[in-house]
């Protein structure tokens, strides 16, 4: 391990050296440089500005630059894989994918189990239980209180309704009595009025024929009333004359 450490230190020194060299290159040959994020950092001559000193900078040919002359006619051969080998590869990859899926599921279940069985989780459970109990107790007390209040309220209401019902009954009785009295009065009044009965209808007709009544009347300018067929003031005796007063 010590050897490794020393080697790393030396390599780091080398890295510093490389960076210096790379500056020189960028100034001289004005390569287009790309930041690690892929954005263009510089493509101008004589700019010694870097996006960030700590980050790696990728130096390469500009995008779209032609293939090197020496490589133009080089065609890489397509790798030939036998059919059986291909099938075997596919089988292996499918198996791997499936087993990874199951493993992920297993890990997930394990994590759930661990989350439930841990000391912290148990503490949480206990606290939740306590909280639940406390809340239930509070709820019970509140319910009792409201039940008491409701009982009182209902009692008062019942008394009130009883009183009201009694009052209304008394009132109704009184009204009924009054109504009866009124009906009796009305009946006696009706009985006392002289209606035309079937027994005395003949007499009534005769009376009506005997005393014809004329309701027509006329007025003159002085306000004298002429009833029936009377037309002249001189025909009416002095004491029977009627006159309307204009006030």
């Amino acid at each position: 391990m010590h050897g490794n450490g020393r080697r790393r230190e030396r390599d780091c020194k080398k890295k510093v050296g490389r960076e210096k060299k790379f500056f020189a290159v960028s100034k001289l040959q004005h390569f287009i440089m790309f930041g690690s994020s892929g954005s263009r950092v510089l493509n101008v001559i004589n700019i010694s500005y870097l996006q960030s000193r700590s980050k790696r900078v990728w130096v390469r040919k500009p995008l779209g630059s032609p293939m090197a002359k020496s490589k133009i006619f080089r065609i890489t051969p397509k790798p030939v894989i036998p059919e059986d080998e291909k099938a075997e590869m596919k089988r292996l990859f499918d198996n791997y994918k499936n087993s990874m899926k199951s493993l992920r599921q297993y890990f997930f279940e394990q994590s759930l189990k661990q989350a439930e069985s841990g000391e912290v989780a148990q503490m949480k459970h206990r606290l939740e239980d306590q909280e639940h109990e406390r809340l239930m107790e509070e709820n019970r007390l509140e319910n009792e209180k409201t039940a008491m209040l409701r009982e009182e309220r209902l009692k008062i209401q019942a008394e009130k309704t009883q009183k009201n019902v009694l009052a209304s009954l008394i009132k109704k009785e009184r009204e009924a009595k009054q109504h009866e009295i009124q009906i009796e009065d009305f009946l006696t009044k009706q009985m006392s009025t002289p209606f035309i009965q079937p027994e005395n209808i003949e007499k009534a007709i005769e009376d009506a024929l005997a005393n014809p009544v004329n309701f027509n009347f006329a007025l003159d300018l002085d306000g004298y009333v002429y009833r029936g067929k009377e037309t002249s003031i001189d025909m009416i005796p002095e004491e029977k004359r009627e006159r309307l007063n204009s006030n």
């Binding site: 790393r8 390599d11 080398k14 690690s36 790696r56």
Partner: peptide, 20 residues
Amino acid sequence: GCTNRPFYHIVVQNTKDNQD
């Protein structure tokens, strides 16, 4: 690592973040 001296950290990263 440095040049000619590969050394890797195995890390969890957002997919779109890069080495830096």
